[in-house]
Simulated scan of single mutants.
Amino acid sequence: MDNRTAVSSKWTKTKLLTRSALLNAHIPQTRRLSGESLKRMLRRYGMVYVKPDTGSCGVGVMKLEQTRRRWIVHSGARRRTFPAYRALFQWLRSSTNGRPYLAQRGVRVIRWRGRPIDFRVMIQKGGKTRWTVTGTAARVAPPRKAVTNGSQGGTIYGARTLLRRVTGTKRAARTLGQFKALARATAARFSHAYPRMRELGLDIAVDRAGKCWVLEVNTRPDPCPFTKLSDKAMLRRIVRYARGYGRCYDLRCRKARRGGG
């Protein structure tokens, strides 16, 4: 795949999506991280994720929460508490080492056995054919962690299987349909801006009211989650499409855990 189709900046990708009225309604409010932007978002939402503008695999992502009398940071499996916002931000500035970071509204997602769930949706374009959703997998966060990435020890389940367990059969079917619609709308935006784009991996969350949120779009997605599904049909389809545009994947996936479905 041509390097010109890989977009590393999360801020650039977010701005591209928010120019679409349809997609903007499904993008959590995102701002460049600063003392003022983070304070305002914590006051408004109570929970904010901060993430590096460039990076992958959930590395550097932290969850911040504000309660009435304290500020809490979840970083990896560790939890830190601060008595004042100034102390929190000083620690955060030291931890981020001057790297550009983003602050994103925290979504209170559906859970499985008390652990957060999100979904990886793969959409690819093969040859002259239109964009096709080639795979969807559910990712469950490891115990005590706020991120679901397989590289952070997340557990991978079949999306339909887990959604049915958590939300019921009818709502699961509607949600999977929403995933496909969001993936196609996202692919249309990206392919207009980057005509050589051939694959995207969307990270989508579902909140407790059933609304879908696009947390992030990966322009060079790792098919790792799909190697952990018992049904290999999705993985075979993803690999077949990728070969068509010249990409070969490393299918070794050591840290993710196998769930079911």
Rank of each mutant, 00 (worst) to 15 (best):
M1I: 07
D2F: 10
R4N: 13
R4L: 06
T5W: 03
T5K: 04
A6W: 11
W11Q: 09
T12W: 10
K13T: 08
L17T: 04
L17M: 12
T18E: 12
R19H: 12
L22Q: 10
A25F: 02
H26E: 03
T30C: 02
R31W: 08
R32K: 15
L33E: 01
E36G: 09
K39F: 05
R40W: 00
M41T: 06
R43L: 12
G46V: 10
G46H: 07
M47C: 13
V48P: 05
V48Q: 03
Y49D: 01
K51Y: 00
T54V: 14
C57F: 13
G58C: 08
V59F: 04
G60N: 07
V61I: 15
M62Y: 09
K63E: 05
E65N: 11
Q66A: 14
R69Q: 08
R70A: 15
W71M: 08
A77P: 07
F82W: 07
P83C: 07
P83R: 15
R86C: 01
L88Y: 12
F89D: 06
F89Q: 03
L92K: 10
R93S: 15
G98Y: 03
G98Q: 05
R99H: 12
R99V: 04
P100W: 01
R108Y: 07
V109M: 13
W112I: 00
G114W: 12
G114K: 10
R115C: 01
I117V: 15
M122K: 00
M122L: 03
G127R: 09
V133A: 02
V133I: 12
G135H: 04
G135W: 00
T136E: 08
R139L: 13
V140L: 09
P142I: 00
R144T: 14
T148L: 11
T148K: 13
N149A: 12
G150K: 02
Q152L: 14
G154I: 05
T155D: 05
A159W: 08
R160C: 04
L162A: 10
R165N: 04
G168Q: 07
A172P: 14
A173T: 14
T175A: 13
F179G: 06
F179P: 06
L182N: 08
A183I: 09
F190W: 06
S191N: 02
S191D: 05
H192T: 12
A193W: 08
Y194V: 15
I204M: 08
I204K: 04
A205R: 09
D207E: 06
G210K: 12
T219G: 06
P225F: 01
P225R: 09
F226T: 09
F226P: 11
T227A: 06
S230H: 11
K232W: 00
A233R: 15
M234K: 13
R237V: 01
R237I: 00
R237A: 04
I238T: 03
Y241W: 06
A242M: 03
R243T: 03
G244W: 06
Y245Q: 01
G246C: 04
R247I: 09
Y249V: 04
Y249S: 02
D250H: 14
C253F: 12
C253N: 10
R254V: 13
K255L: 15
K255W: 10
A256Y: 04
A256L: 13
A256P: 11
A256E: 05
G259Y: 00
G261C: 11
